[in-house]
Design a protein around this nucleic acid. Structure first.
Lengths: 108, 108
DNA sequence: ACACATCGTTTCGGATGCGTATCATCTTTG
DNA sequence: CAAAGATGATACGCATCCGAAACGATGTGT
């Protein structure tokens, strides 16, 4: 894939997101969501903050927002009740599945 | 390209943007920037607003923000001085060139 | 038990973005 | 020329997000 084609694909997907997207996910929120769904669990607030190079409140707020849209879920870690385990949801999986199909289609 | 690969590529690029990006461009700003650089000029505020399906102030504000970072430039249309012609800059072209290379690399 | 460390959340002041409504400027029309 | 239309910018109130700091809850070590 050539850089020019890559940019056009990126543009197409961004345009789709601007038009369609119900909740307007920021780049950071998208990065968090994808990390949760693509990388191996468990996912904690601290871990995600370190992975993305942002502060903890950023993660907390993003989880609040995405949780409101049922894209992610939170649960206490019963082994160490200080931790919060971030978990996937059906809604989130469907959302990313749709996005994946869109990107794959535009990448052609 | 399969959906799973597409999503991973998307993730990689988003992660890079969160880590590196000096100005944190939103999805809308990115869509505007790419429209300016990929689609045929002339680009006006009204035209961009219609193209993206957002209101005019959204475009004005995005141009302010991106103009501060020298990613775009504005100029009066001398034929019809009501219009503002949005123009590309060297900084913006370099920025997108780097992004294009990154996407193309991650898409492999 | 007690002090200390760790984790997630909340608070604070400030910055930015949003849509609606309005404004200033310029152009076209009668 | 005056009125109407078009265009981009601005004012307003609201919502969200940011990082730093403080906080409550939980775990660890002595």
């Amino acid at each position: 894939m050539k850089p020019g084609e890559a940019l056009k694909c990126w543009h197409d997907v961004n345009m789709y997101m601007v038009h369609d997207e119900q909740p307007d996910l920021s780049v950071r929120q998208m990065a968090i969501l994808l990390t949760i769904y693509l990388e191996a669990p468990p996912h904690t607030v601290r871990g995600l903050a370190k992975r993305l190079g942002v502060t903890k409140p950023v993660i907390t707020r993003a989880l609040n927002t995405m949780g409101r849209h049922d894209l992610v879920d939170r649960r206490r870690d019963e082994n160490d009740r200080r931790n919060v385990l971030v978990q996937r949801t059906v809604t989130g999986a469907l959302y990313l599945e749709k996005l994946a199909d869109l990107i794959a289609e535009k990448a052609r």
